[in-house]
């Protein structure tokens, strides 16, 4: 049991480490580019002023918002992993499979909205719920096609192993 858990976590770690790097690249069109675009002088060096400022804000003013969104995803993911272990038993396999699928969809949906919401958090210093509302407003105003195009775009780029997008 312990070894199985360990291997699962090992796999999760690889996925996480890959997404750390992808997280740096993929949100940039709406992220650091914001500073880089409007104030290039502040974001054109190795450890630029924009990066330092952003780092301080993320670990102080916006840390609560990060913890809030992360908790929601962690809760759903923990439920899903628990269900994965439950699949080792022979009871109600079909039901467990469907539940796991639903949880996976919910997890991906929350994770996807979170990524947009945290762009608002990073750019405007909003709290998590307000940022989430703004994301929904954005999708409603600009159309879901745009977001789905981005989703597809990110999925293609991260297809080899990282299934978080």
């Amino acid at each position: 049991m312990y070894v199985v858990c360990f291997i699962c976590f090992l796999f999760e770690f690889v996925m996480d480490s890959r997404s750390h790097i992808h997280n740096t690249i993929l949100p940039c069109p709406s992220g650091v580019v914001g500073t880089w675009w409007f104030a290039p002088a502040e974001a054109s060096s190795f450890f630029s002023a924009a990066l330092q400022d952003s780092m301080v804000r993320a670990t102080t003013y916006s840390f609560g918002s990060i913890c809030f969104g992360a908790f929601v995803v962690a809760l759903v993911r923990a439920l899903r992993v628990t269900l994965q272990y439950a699949r080792q038993n022979d009871d109600a396999q079909f039901l467990v499979c469907i539940l796991e699928c639903i949880l996976r969809c919910i997890e991906d949906m929350i994770d996807y909205i979170n990524r947009w919401a945290y762009v608002y958090v990073g750019l405007y210093g909003m709290d998590y719920l307000t940022a989430g509302r703004e994301v929904i407003n954005l999708f409603q105003q600009k159309g879901w096609t745009v977001s789905m195009l981005c989703l597809r775009h990110f999925t293609i780029l991260t297809k080899n192993g990282d299934d978080r997008f």
Partner: peptide, 16 residues
Amino acid sequence: VHQVLQYTVHVVCAGK
């Protein structure tokens, strides 16, 4: 903890 670390990187990238 993993999600917090991941989203912190995300917010750092997005922030100003």
